[in-house]
């Protein structure tokens, strides 16, 4: 399933950020932007955010809920949770290995 996210190419990073944000509960665009800024220090532009949302929706990884006025919240699906879990596990494994090697070479304390 993680391959689904990697299929998104350059959109996979924003997609992971969006899924990670939605893993904490359903949100509309502005709430996602704020949450991602707080979580990762990345400010997603509107074009990037909606490029990722449209792809994730097409792949069935998120679902659009009924609009609340002009704002429409999104929710992560079960497939989205699985894909995010696999992707984050891979990232964590890479991070662990990288940090271990850096420590071994004296690169970090």
């Amino acid at each position: 399933m993680a391959a689904k996210l990697q299929d998104l190419g350059r959109w996979s990073d924003p997609a992971v950020l969006v899924l990670s944000s939605l893993a904490g509960g359903e949100k509309h665009g502005y709430a996602m932007v704020g949450d991602i800024q707080e979580m990762a220090g990345v400010h997603l532009g509107p074009g990037t955010l909606y490029g990722a949302l449209s792809r994730l929706e097409e792949q069935g990884l998120i679902r659009a809920l009924a609009a609340e006025g002009r704002r429409r919240p999104y929710r992560i699906t079960a497939a989205g949770s699985r894909a995010l879990g696999e992707q984050l596990t891979t990232i964590a494994a890479v991070a662990d290995t990288g940090l271990r090697r850096l420590r071994a070479s004296g690169g970090v304390a």
Binding site: G29, A67, R70
Partner: peptide
């Protein structure tokens, strides 16, 4: 997406 992008 226009309505929600405009709102954002």
């Amino acid at each position: 997406y226009r309505a929600e992008m405009s709102a954002l």
